[in-house]
Design a protein around this nucleic acid. Structure first.
Lengths: 207, 207
DNA sequence: CTATGTGAATTTATTCACAGCA
DNA sequence: TGCTGTGAATAAATTCACATAG
């Protein structure tokens, strides 16, 4: 049982483990070995054990890990034990996809509000959520929303980010390819489809 | 001018630099210093210089980098000098977003074909591309398509991947949260919206 | 006898500091 | 003088090998 600093890369893998555990649990497993989990999520067994060792041994030697308990521990570490409300800004193609995305539940995340600046969309109900005018972003602070997803055209991304920060949002998932500037107490994770796709050719053996 | 192995992390950053250079070029710049580019793309200046040093110095000391030339070199390294045709499988919410995504041009990437298994969608034209039946995935080999994007429900992801591999696809961008198994000469990059969002709370100072 | 947990070794990536060229 | 290019130093992450607990 150690309590050194947890490597960033470990934090990145924890949600993946959590998802694998949820699936194994659903298919009737009560416990799992590092090797079995490794096969399932495509990470090495020793990597998994090392990752878990950063915050204490919750396995049983000779047996493996109790799925229920391990999941609970990982959720606690990732601060996912309480449900986090998330705001979605921009309900175009990408935003609609996010709204319809089925995978958030596993992590205790829920899209609690959606915003757009298109009058045709404002007031409409999508996936059970009524789309609001972006001018109402400033109400988020009072509504207990901590996270936000930016799915607007890149020209608007910085303005939206500024509004979110002003409203007290502390974590942003940014789908625009533009780097957005925020105070350093706000965490931004950027996903850019094109830059990821652009890496593929490099790894393809030139026939 | 060195020719050691290029770090993976460097390869990951190259498309970001390329994008920054394209923007700087559009706003009328002909050259740029590592410091200016650093401010623009949020990477340290020394990191940028180090990255470039892996494949030779194309800067001019005291001046900076010629944007035109540098872009060309990066494209060559990433094998983006020739246009890569990409197939999209699944034109639901997420797939539609990918089709409409404006950011591929910078990288010489183009969505050349789209597939779905929904009869209502097959034959329909979306963003100038006619949606085909997934049973026609096997034609991709003859059509000079090398890359593919998987945007189908996770249950179908592995089957689609198998079909793509059989058709000779060499690089896959996988939007399903499930790890897909492929021969090791095929490169897969997975993007899972939920696992990224799930990392955010960890970094938020608990008030 | 099985599968965890972890120091130690190794590999990989970042950061520094400054020599060297335009 | 200004900014690149790169060895050397540091830091971070991965991999190994094995002692240890159930």
């Amino acid at each position: 049982m150690r309590h050194y600093r947890i490597p960033n890369e470990t934090v990145r893998r924890l949600p993946i483990y959590l998802r694998g555990l949820a699936m194994l649990s659903q298919s009737g497993n009560a416990s799992v070995s590092s090797q079995k989990l490794a096969d399932f999520v495509s990470v090495n067994a020793w990597q998994i054990r090392k990752d878990f060792s950063y915050f204490g041994g919750f396995g049983t030697r000779g047996v493996g890990y109790d799925i229920e308990n391990l999941s609970k521990q990982i959720k606690k570490i990732l601060k996912l034990a309480v449900v986090h409300k998330t705001a979605l800004v921009g309900v175009g193609n990408l935003g609609s996809a996010v709204l319809a995305y089925p995978g958030f539940g596993t992590y205790g995340l829920s899209i609690a509000a959606a915003f757009d600046n298109d009058p045709d969309k404002i007031g409409r109900k999508m996936n059970g959520i009524t789309v609001e005018d972006v001018s109402r972003l400033n109400t988020l602070g009072k509504r207990d929303v901590e996270l936000a997803i930016i799915a607007v055209p890149e020209q608007a991304a910085q303005d939206v980010a500024d509004a979110l920060v002003a409203a007290g949002i502390k974590g942003i998932l940014n789908f625009s390819p533009r780097r957005i500037a925020v105070p350093k107490n706000v965490k931004v994770i950027t996903i850019d489809i094109a830059t990821d796709l652009a890496r593929l050719p490099y790894y393809i053996p030139s026939s």
